[in-house]
Design a binder for these strands. Structure first.
Length: 828
RNA sequence: GCCGGGGUGGCGGAAUGGCAGACGCAGGCGACUUAAAAUCGCCCGUGGUAACACGUGCGGGUUCGAAUCCCGCCCCCGGCACCA
């Protein structure tokens, strides 16, 4: 069969480049020959090259998807050619809200929608010729996969890292659902404008805070974009400070505060509790009670977002006083919503002179401001115009006066600790991860609870569930599957949709009734560990064999959008560390090198969106130009990480380039030899393309191949050996054309099995260089010199140029700057 | 406000201390053609006939030499947003 192809190609210098014909042909070849199957065994070096897998939405692939996928595909094909065993898989992050919304509206089972969408996505990805090992395809909604997601949950549960807590959520009774913060506007639901309440609801929470230090420290070990590492650092938000106890006047209670500036303790002129603080009720005086109650109520009715939207420093005095432990001063205690209940101790000592927020509050409420830190070491005496938040020298601080901020902090923390009035403390902004959703289309949480009932709760008997006695479903019973429902609409019960599936929810064991957890997992769950399952996707007895995990981890290259810089990448790292502690994985971190592809904008430079009508559909592009043109164009647009606008006329230019490569390859002459200039260009091109692929600078790699093909076009006789090099360099970018060219040059497939071309650095060197001659920094002439000429040779050549000679005749030469092969600068 | 990234021809971009504008798009001229398309060749930062001058967001600095390094400012994009 392939002999026939050669014959056809050789006969057909007239045969035109026809992607519509060759692309399906080579896709079928790869498919039939398992060209991209991940090799077994471990003799060769490995490369695990991974894309962030997509949510298979109903609208199919958009042009943003293939950008990252093409980049990883080039890396995968390049590494194979370089002798690596490559793992390059693809799968589906298929749980998610859109399929559930569609089910609510149409009654279609989310699984049916999902299966259909996956089919579309897969067809489109295959159309683009990506070299995935499809035998490892994963779907996070398949029972095989859900089983192990649930297994990890149980592992978290057994380790005390999954617990239940009453967490205030945005519950909308009219919609019968819990809303995310961004779905609530001014206390009303974004859709429908129904009232939303902050109600405490039992939730499953994962103790990610237990891993905060490791998640922070190990960021040093990964090759990630700096911006992403910084975002994660800030999200974790570690700070070192002190906890200080303030005795409440007239009560047997003390207020604990957290501060990063214990050195400003002498400047604490009031305290603030978060409105939710449990001491509020006790310390509020009768006189202030009405005001305090009203303020607390008001804070409760606002969403977290609305509370944070206003920067005004509102608050009320509780009537209570507390004693400053360092100087015995009595300070008033306020409540204000600028103090957050979820951070630190939910209470602060307020130092208006040295904290902007406290300064604003003090100014608004007429509270004294005492300066305790100064740049010079002397108090300014005058009232401060604004808070001085920098470090400095202590003043007005008794025996501590004159200490630097750092010394003061260390001393007072020690003194407080000795006096039993405080201690050093580390705080994090990171909070535990609310892991339950009141949804249908997610992994059921494999937990059940004992039930008290006097009948059969499946048919309406009264029951009460002992949520405080959660029990793990036995691993042998996994996967715990979702029940079939007739109706996916959220109901009145905040326990979620699954609560209505009574036959599924309640079961009897050893004469006792039990109820299953009716919350499901969030979409993050499946994407937290899919990279692990790709390593051993059909293993029925383990999540992943230890041997294969050792072979393939960590992921060497992970490419995906920057929108996942924090949540997905932090959650996945957390689970990975838990699995490391459980002995499942051998590495600290899952993803060694991370790259974010930039966004592709519409033709007008605006974000692509249906409403703007500027969405480009990959099917149309492949129809018009072919998959290889689309791939090469997306890589040629600019740096991978950059945001850049789509341009259909530019893709036509890329298509012309591929056309020319096809045409010039058809002119191959086996007997022709490369002359010195062509040999040099060939070696330079190999070097440039190789280096650029290693650095993922695909745009400049393509440019170098364009230069080579332009030169080849000019030749009378085009040497086969040069065309072979071009085909090998081009094939990771334009794989179908690469195979076709390889056949045209008389070889049998696949070009993927050919070794990557090597260059000889000596042959890359030019033997002559053109050097600009500057006079006082301005270019006045150019001279041609042998490579590595000396300053004397350069000067001599420069003086023979008319312009230079004329200038030198007028003025004396004061200084010569000679950078070999680069520049000659004469200072007169 | 804070953090991160960026600002270069008509457009996408290249050059990270040494000839600014590689490569491509768009545009112009020419060849081929009865003609058009396609293809091929040449031109293409601005001003100027030219010599030359000017030119990488703006203002300053360092340097023989700056798109590139430093200081100050403006604008655009992304993220975070009272975290004590």
């Amino acid at each position: 069969m392939w002999a026939g192809l050669h014959h056809h190609a050789m006969a057909g210098a007239m045969t035109r480049y026809n992607p519509a014909a060759i692309e399906p042909k080579w896709q079928a070849y790869w498919n039939d020959h398992d060209t991209f199957k991940t090799p077994e065994g471990a003799e060769r070096p490995k490369a695990y090259i991974l894309d962030m897998f997509p949510y298979p939405s109903g609208s199919g692939l958009h042009v943003g998807h293939p950008e990252g996928y093409t980049a990883t595909d080039i890396m995968a094909r390049y590494r194979r050619a370089r002798g690596y065993d490559v793992l390059h898989p693809m799968g589906w992050d298929a749980f998610g809200l859109p399929a559930e919304q569609h089910a609510i509206l149409t009654g279609t089972h989310p699984r049916d929608t999902t299966v259909q969408n996956i089919e579309t996505f897969k067809r489109q990805l295959k159309m683009l010729g990506f070299s995935y090992d499809w035998s490892r395809e994963i779907d996070t909604t398949s029972p095989d996969y859900v089983r192990w997601t649930q297994w990890i949950f149980l592992e978290l549960f057994k380790r005390g890292l999954a617990y239940q807590n009453e967490v205030p959520v945005n519950w909308c009774p009219a919609l019968g659902t819990v809303l995310a913060n961004e779905e609530v506007i001014n206390g009303l639901s974004e859709r429908g404008g129904h009232p939303v309440e902050r109600v405490p609801l039992r939730q499953w929470v994962l103790k990610i805070t237990a891993y905060a230090d490791r998640l922070l420290a190990d960021l040093d070990d990964v090759e990630w974009p700096n911006s992403t590492r910084i975002m994660q650092q800030e999200w974790i938000g570690r700070s070192e400070g002190a906890e200080v106890h303030f005795q409440v006047v007239g009560h047997d209670a003390s207020i604990e505060v957290y501060t990063t500036r214990p050195d400003t303790l002498f400047g604490a002129t009031f305290m603030v509790l978060a409105p939710e603080h449990p001491l509020v009720d006790a310390i509020t005086s009768d006189r202030q009670r009405a005001d305090v109650t009203a303020y607390v109520e008001q804070a409760k009715s606002k969403s977290e977002r609305d509370r944070q939207a206003s920067k005004d420093k509102t608050g009320v005095f509780t009537g209570g006083l507390a004693i400053n432990p360092v100087n015995g001063a009595e300070v008033p205690v306020y409540i204000a919503d600028y103090v957050l209940w979820g951070y630190g101790t939910g209470a602060i000592m307020a130092v208006p002179a040295h904290d902007e927020r406290d300064f604003e509050f003090a100014t608004a409420h007429g509270i004294p401001i005492i300066e305790v830190v100064s740049k010079t070491g002397a108090a300014s005496g005058a009232p401060l115009a604004e808070a001085m938040v920098e470090q400095g020298i202590a003043v007005n601080s008794g025996k501590y006066d004159g200490l630097s901020t750092a010394e003061f902090k260390a001393r007072i923390t020690k003194d407080l600790e000795e006096a039993g009035k405080g201690r050093a403390r580390v705080e994090y902004k990171l909070r535990d991860w609310i892991f339950s959703r009141q949804r249908y289309w997610g992994e059921p949480i494999p937990i059940y609870f004992p039930v008290d009932t006097d009948g059969d709760p499946r048919v309406g008997a009264e029951f009460s569930i002992h949520y405080d006695e959660p029990m793990a479903v036995d691993a042998s019973e996994l996967p715990l599957r979702l029940p079939e429902l007739d109706d996916y609409k959220p109901g009145k019960d905040p326990a979620g949709v699954l609560a209505r599936a009574a036959d599924w929810r309640f079961f009897r064991k050893d004469g006792r009734w039990y109820a299953r957890e009716t919350n499901t997992m969030p979409q993050w769950a499946g994407s937290c560990w899919y990279y692990l399952r790709f390593i051993d996707p059909r293993n029925e007895s383990e999540i992943c064999s230890r041997e294969l995990a050792e072979r393939w981890l960590p992921v060497d290259l992970y490419v995906g959008g920057a929108e996942h810089a924090v949540l997905h990448l932090l959650y996945a790292r957390f689970w990975h560390k838990v699995l490391f502690d459980a002995g499942v994985v051998p590495t600290n971190e899952p993803f060694k090198k991370l790259v974010h592809q930039g966004m592709i904008l519409g033709e007008g430079g605006q974000k692509m969106s249906k409403s703007r009508g500027n969405v480009v559909n990959p099917d149309d592009i492949v129809d018009a130009f072919g998959a290889d043109s689309m791939r090469v164009y997306e890589m040629f647009m600019g740096p991978l990480e950059a945001t850049k606008p789509w341009s259909t006329s530019s893709i036509a230019g890329v298509r012309r380039f591929l056309d020319r490569v096809h045409t010039v390859t058809a002119r191959a002459e086996a007997s022709a030899r490369s002359d010195a200039a062509l040999t040099r260009l060939l070696h330079q091109t190999i070097r440039k393309v190789t280096d650029d692929i290693e650095g993922m600078r695909f745009n400049t790699a393509i440019s170098a191949m364009m230069v080579l093909s332009n030169e080849l076009m000019k030749l009378e006789q085009v040497p086969t050996e040069a065309l072979e090099v071009l085909a090998k360099l081009l094939h990771p970018f334009a794989p179908h054309l690469g195979e076709e060219l390889w056949g045209m040059l008389g070889h049998s497939p696949s070009i993927q099995h050919q070794a990557w071309p090597e260059y000889d650095p000596a042959l890359c060197e030019e033997d002559e260089v053109e050097v600009p001659v500057q006079i006082n920094g301005k270019v006045r002439a150019r001279i041609t010199l042998p490579k590595d000429a000396t300053q004397d040779q350069a000067l001599k050549a420069a003086k023979s140029a008319d312009v230079v000679a004329a200038q030198l005749a007028d003025k004396p030469l004061r200084k010569v700057i000679w950078v070999p092969n680069k520049i000659l600068n004469l200072i007169l």
